[in-house]
Design a binder for these strands. Sequence first.
DNA 1: GTCTGGCACTCGGTAGACTTGAGTGCCAGG
DNA 2: CCTGGCACTCAAGTCTACCGAGTGCCAGAC
Lengths: 357, 357
Amino acid sequence: MTPPLDSVPLADAAGDERALNDRRAAILEAVVTEYIGTAEPVGSSHVANAPGVQVSSATVRSEMVALEREGYLVQPHTSAGRIPTDKGYRFFVDQLTGPGVLGPIQRKQVTQFFNQVHGEMETVLEQASGLLSELTSYAAVVVGPSHESASIRSVQLVGLSPLHALLVVVLSDGAVEKRTMDLQAETSEDVLARAGTQLASHLVGRTLAQPWTVPSSGSAEVDHLVTSAHVAFDSLEGGMDADQVFVGGPARLAESFDAVETVRSVLAILEQQLVVVSLLRDVLDRGLSVAIGTEHGFEPLSSCAVVVAPMSIDGQDLGAVGLLGPTRMDYARAMAAAHVVGERLGQRIGGGNDGRH
Amino acid sequence: MTPPLDSVPLADAAGDERALNDRRAAILEAVVTEYIGTAEPVGSSHVANAPGVQVSSATVRSEMVALEREGYLVQPHTSAGRIPTDKGYRFFVDQLTGPGVLGPIQRKQVTQFFNQVHGEMETVLEQASGLLSELTSYAAVVVGPSHESASIRSVQLVGLSPLHALLVVVLSDGAVEKRTMDLQAETSEDVLARAGTQLASHLVGRTLAQPWTVPSSGSAEVDHLVTSAHVAFDSLEGGMDADQVFVGGPARLAESFDAVETVRSVLAILEQQLVVVSLLRDVLDRGLSVAIGTEHGFEPLSSCAVVVAPMSIDGQDLGAVGLLGPTRMDYARAMAAAHVVGERLGQRIGGGNDGRH
DNA sequence: GTCTGGCACTCGGTAGACTTGAGTGCCAGG
DNA sequence: CCTGGCACTCAAGTCTACCGAGTGCCAGAC
C-alpha cells in the first residue's frame, strides 16, 4: 500500500517543502482564487478547466490528494471540495507578482481622495483609514509616525484659572501636546510667563526623551512652577510615544465573518490599539507584507489575515497602513490598496506639502 | 361576539390610553422582566406566579389578550408566548422608580475608576466610555462639553520649517487646537513672533465665533502672516464645534444582537459620530432619558434602545453619556449606570479638580 | 361578576426517513 | 502518465410525524 502512494510525488520526494511543480501550483492557485470568490469548497471539476491546468478532473483529484498530503488544502468532509489552508494561502500570496494593481474605479477614488483631502495630519490619516476600508471593504488601520525623533519647537505655560495652568509643547513635526497642571497657590500671569520662558530656553531643540534640568532662577515661585512643569512634562513623554492609530470601517468586519463570535472577538482586538500597532510592526519587521492565520502568532486573530504596507519616504519610517480581513481575503486587491495608499500617504505627510489648503 | 370581549376592560373603556389597572401593569411588568432576562416569548403560566400577579394562567391569558389589543404585547405566532412591543417597554420604563441603583460590584468599579483616573479631560472621557460599557455590557457613548462658550487664552505662531508654521490656540477650558500654515516666503522667527503677538493681543479674551480684524502693523511681512493666520483660524473654528465623542466597547454590540446584519448597520452608525451626538442631544432635549425602538425617529436603530444621561454640574451643560443596546436591554441597570457615571463625570470635569495628580 | 380548571386547537421545532447531487477514491485501459 | 468510468460518501434539502408549550374559549365555582 505504501509504494504506490509514495511514488506519486516525484520531484520533491526529498525536500517535501520544495516548490510545487507547475501543475500543482496552477491547481492550488485555481482553488485559492475560486475559494476567495465563492467561499465554497472547490471541487476538482471546477478546477479542471482553469487556465494553466487543462487536465481531466480525475487528474486534478489525484493532484489534490497530494496537495492535501502536503498541507496546502483540506477537505471539510469526505465528499466535499477542497479549501486552502493557511499554508495554501501563503503559497498563493508568495506567488503573486508584486502587490498587484488597483482597478480603474479604485484608482480614481485614490486620486480623488488625495486631491481633495487637506488639513492636519491627524485628519488626513483618519480619513485615509476610511478610504482604505472603502477601497477594499475590509477593516483598515493606519498608524501615524512616532514622535520620538521630533524635537521641541515651543514650550509655553498658559494660565486657565488662578489655580490651573496648561503646559503646551509643540514639536517640530507639528504635533502639539498639553498637560493640565494644578497650582498650589494662586499664580500671576507674569510668573507663569517667566517660568514658561525659562522652560522654553532649556527645552527648545531637545527631543522629548532627553533629560533636562533648569537652574534656579532666583525666584522661588518661578522655580516651583518649573518643577511642577517638569513633572507634567515627564507624563507627557509617556503619552507621546503611544503611536497614533486610526481604525477605518470596523463595521465591515461584520461583512467579512458570518460567525458573530468571531466578529466580536476581532472587534475587541481592534479596540486595543496597542496590540494592533505591535502586530503591524511585528509583521513589517519580519519583512512580510501579509500575515495569514496563525503566522503572526496572535491566537485570537487566527481566522484573519493581515495585509501591511509601510508608510515611508526616502527610507524614513513614517508609520504603516494595514488591512484586516478573513484569511480568504482578496490578497491581490488588498495588497494593491495598502501599497498605494501607504505610498501616497508617505509622500503626503513626509513630503512637506501637508496642510496645504 | 363583541359584547363579552368589550366588557373585559372595565376602567379604561373611554380613554383606552389611560393607565393600566394594577393587575395588567403587574403582568406587563412580569412579561418585560422575564423577556429581558431570557429573550424568549413569555407564556401565561410563567407570569401567573410572579409577585404581584397571583392569579391563574387563564386569567393572565385573558389580560394578555387585552394588553395585546392595546398594543403593549405581541405574539410572534399564534401558539407562542408574548413579547413586549416598544410601547410595552415604554410603559415598563416609565414605571421604574428613578434610575435605579447599581449593584455593589458595579458601584465599587465606579468608585475605583474615579479614584484612579487622572490626566487630561479627553483621556478621562475616553476611559469613562470604556467603564460605562463594561458596567453594562452595552456599547457606550460619551460626548464631551462643547467649546462654544470658552474664550481664547493664548494664540501663538510656531515655526516648524522655513516654509511652515503652526497656529496654536489655547482655550479657557483647556482645549488646544492647532492648524498648519504654509508660508509663501521664508519667514524669520522674529516676524513669526511679532505676528503672533499681534494676533494674541487682539484675540485673547474673545470666543472662537466672534469675528475680528487686526489693524496693519506697518510691516507688510507681518500683515501678510496675520492674514494667513486669519484663514487658518477660521478653519479652526469649524473643527472645534464638532463635539468630542468617545465610543466605548463597540464590540459588545456583537453580544447584544445575534443578527450579523444588525450588528453591521449599528456599528456603521456608531462610526458616524455626528449622528450619534445629535441623537443623544435630541433625546435629551425632548426631556427623555430613554428612547426605545422608533421613538427617536431614526430608522436604522429601530431595534435598539438608547439610554441617555446628561453630564452637568450646577445646571451647566457639560455633555452627555449614552448607552446603546437592544430594545430588550436591562433598562434599570443601564439607567443607573448612565446616571451615576454622567453625574460623577460632570463633577469631575466641571468641578475643576480635573487633571489632579 | 370575576376567576378558574378544563379542553380543543395551533403551530413552531425536532427527529427520523428518504432523496439528491456534488464530490471523492480507485482502477482498468489507452 | 492520463483519463473515463464506477461505486461510494455525505451535507443539505424535503417530507412526515409528533411533541409540547401556549393559546382561546367556555362552563362552573366562589
